[in-house]
Amino acid sequence: MQAAQLEAPPRSRRALATAWRDAGVPTLATVIAFGVWEAACRLFDVPSYLLPRPSEIWTDTIEIGGTVAMHTLATLKTVFLGFLASIVISLPLAVALTTSPATAASVYPFLVWTQSIPKVALAPILVVILGANELPRVVITFLVAFFPLVISVATGLMSVPSELIELGRACRASKWSELVRIRLPYAVPFIFAGLKVAITLAVVGAVVAEFVNADSGLGFLIQTSTAFFKVPVAFGALIILSLIGVILFQAVVVIERIFFPWSSANSTAIL
């Protein structure tokens, strides 16, 4: 048996070792952390309204599984719509920012202004203006998520080596084909860096919006369950929220790897 192990090509063993390091170790660490949490709560007899045990969180959340699923879908809807709005608005905005110093100078103050307003303070005002529906939630999610995306896309568009721009000019390329054939593709790694930040912020934005105005969603669930001291359910919602954040982030990573392999190969050092 030992001989067979030795004969295994070193490459696959190394792959196994990397897989263990990348997936095995984090999983094990998470399981241990939850184990310690459970044991500590039992050992010191911590009341569940202060810090519920993981097992309690699990059973209480599963008990109202259907409701939790409904709330999760509501939050996901807000996250997606807000994220989509961020992309649709950030890309042209970043292009506008980089086309001329004059547009940059006129748009930047507004951008910084929207960022300096506390979104939690803005949320109730938006509800008054836009009504108690999905729209103010999407707008808040967008306002929280779009800024880093605009900045990273603009940075990407500006980071094209001047020689490539000169090459484009030497080929007498129009501004449009310079943008589409040189600047935008060049910015792809930056765009994805921005998307990764934006998707995580979109989850935060959606919850902020739900705290202020919602009749469903995980943020709403946390508020109502804490009001009735159903702390395990609130923790359950919290864990689902963090899972949503992680899964959506990874989804962006996977999309980048599949559709822009050269981009992720270049940017692995950054993110």
Binding site: E163, L164, R172, S177, R181, V188, F260, W262, N266
Partner: peptide
């Protein structure tokens, strides 16, 4: 024109890089 840095397009293959000026 040839510059000091190759400045090839990282997303395009070698062949597409050579064809790039014609496309532009």
């Amino acid at each position: 024109i040839v510059f000091q840095a190759p400045t090839l397009l990282p997303w395009a293959t070698v062949l597409d890089n050579v064809l790039f000026p014609l496309r532009m």
